[in-house]
Computed example of a mutant assay.
Amino acid sequence: MKGILIYTTLLSSLMGFMVVDAMPDGAPIEACANLEPMHSDNRRTPGSPLAAIILSDFPGLMYIPGQNYTVTVDATIGSLGFRGFMIQGRAAADLSPVGTFAASGTDYQAVCDNNTAATHTNRDFKGDVPLTWTAPPPGTGAVIFRFSIVEQFSVFWTRQNSQRIEERNDTASSSPTPSMTTTSPAMTATSSMTITSLVTSTATVSPTPTNNIGRGDGGAAGLLTNTTLMLFLAMLLILVN
């Protein structure tokens, strides 16, 4: 009788331990396909889960390929927290795993092929768990985070979806605007052409015949004046050139 009592006590303790705790080392590798916690009873608990995915590090709910972001598994207000979780980035088009999580951090570890998912590392109650996620390469398209939350061994929510985040396309290159340069005609060339035209005009214009009768040396004086003017203009043209 005493042996039966001891056996019953141990069995009750073991069952109680299984009821209140999540798997202590995180979700098993088999959970990578559908994010099921692989507990003995895989029933989905009705209602909203005890946690949500916070995407405040994504401006405008958009991501840049290859950039690191913080994705937070956050307990809902009024709850005691959650014990276990599993989260994975999925392409919105076909739900294939995309992106990678950092290998480890506070209360979490990266799992599944190429570290595409993250899960808990202990069965303590958690208020929030920030995760470092690296966005997938260009051309992936929109992404969601699919996650499962465990409150107790038999109380959990599976395959919950976060908000959708779009891929940001920054393909436009910022090439420098070609500079516009204008070349003004040289002022000296313009001046030279003007003076040349002036000298040519002066040289080709014949003086008006004058009647020098009774005027003495007036005709010679006029010829001297014209010669002096032509010499002056010629010297000026030489100086400008």
Results as ranks from 00 to 15, higher is better:
Asn241Trp: 13
Ala220Pro: 05
Phe153Val: 02
Arg164Ile: 10
Asn115Asp: 13
Ile64Asn: 10
Ser154Asn: 14
Pro138Asp: 06
Ala93Lys: 14
Leu224Tyr: 08
Met187Pro: 07
Leu80Pro: 07
Asp170Lys: 05
Asn169Ser: 09
Thr208Ala: 11
Asp94Asn: 15
Gly99Lys: 08
Gly219Gln: 00
Met187Ala: 14
Pro137Glu: 09
Gly141Thr: 07
Phe145Pro: 00
Ala92Gln: 11
Ser191Leu: 15
Ile29Met: 06
Ile213Thr: 15
Gly219Pro: 00
Gly219Cys: 00
Thr158Ala: 12
Asp107His: 15
Val20His: 07
Thr228Leu: 13
Thr183Asn: 12
Thr200His: 05
Asn241Gln: 14
Arg123Asn: 13
Thr158Ile: 12
Arg90Ala: 08
Leu61Phe: 10
Thr45Ala: 06
Pro130Met: 02
Tyr108Glu: 05
His120Ala: 11
Asp217Tyr: 00
Gly3Pro: 03
Thr182Gln: 10
Ala110Lys: 03
Gly89Tyr: 02
Asn169Gly: 01
Trp157Asp: 01
Ile53Thr: 08
Asp94Phe: 06
Thr45Ser: 13
Ile213Met: 08
Glu151Val: 02
Gly141Pro: 07
Val73Arg: 01
Glu30Leu: 03
Thr227Val: 12
Phe232Ala: 14
Met38Leu: 04
Asn114Cys: 03
Gln163Val: 01
Pro28Asn: 08
Pro207Phe: 04
Phe153Asp: 04
Gln160Cys: 11
Asp94Thr: 09
Ile77Asn: 06
Thr100Trp: 01
Gln88Ala: 09
Met235Ile: 13
Arg159Gly: 07
Ile53Ala: 06
Pro176Met: 05
Ser201Asn: 11
Leu231Trp: 05
Phe232Gln: 13
Leu224Ser: 15
Gln109Tyr: 02
Thr171Ser: 12
Glu36Val: 03
Leu35Gln: 04
Ala172Thr: 15
Ser184Cys: 05
Asp170Cys: 06
Thr196Gln: 11
Pro59Gln: 11
Ser179Ile: 13
Asn42Phe: 00
Gly218Val: 05
Arg168Met: 10
Val150Ala: 08
Pro46Val: 03
Pro28Phe: 00
Val155Gln: 13
Met15Lys: 04
Phe145Leu: 03
Thr119Met: 00
Pro138Ser: 13
Thr194Pro: 00
Asp21Asn: 15
Ala117Asp: 00
Gly219Arg: 00
Ala189Lys: 11
Val129Trp: 07
Ala75Gln: 10
Arg123Trp: 09
Asn34Leu: 09
Asn169Cys: 02
Thr158Leu: 05
Ala220Phe: 11
Leu5Glu: 08
Asp21Glu: 12
Leu80Ser: 14
Pro137Asn: 08
Ala31Gly: 10
Pro46Tyr: 03
Leu80Gln: 13
Phe125Ser: 07
Leu50Val: 12
Tyr108Asp: 04
Met62Cys: 09
Gly105Phe: 01
Arg83Lys: 15
Leu229Thr: 13
Leu198Ser: 09
Arg159Gln: 14
Tyr108Met: 06
Ala52Leu: 11
Gly26Gln: 01
Ser175His: 06
Gln67Asp: 11
Met38Thr: 03
Pro130Asn: 04
Asp21Tyr: 12
Gln67Arg: 14
Leu95Phe: 13
Val111Lys: 06
Ser79Thr: 15
Val129Lys: 09
Met235Gly: 12
Thr121Ser: 10
Ser162Met: 02
Asp217Pro: 05
Ser206His: 11
Leu223His: 06
Leu229Met: 09
Asn114Glu: 12
Ala118Gln: 00
Asn122Gln: 10
Leu10Met: 08
Arg44Asn: 15
Thr202Phe: 06
Asp217His: 00
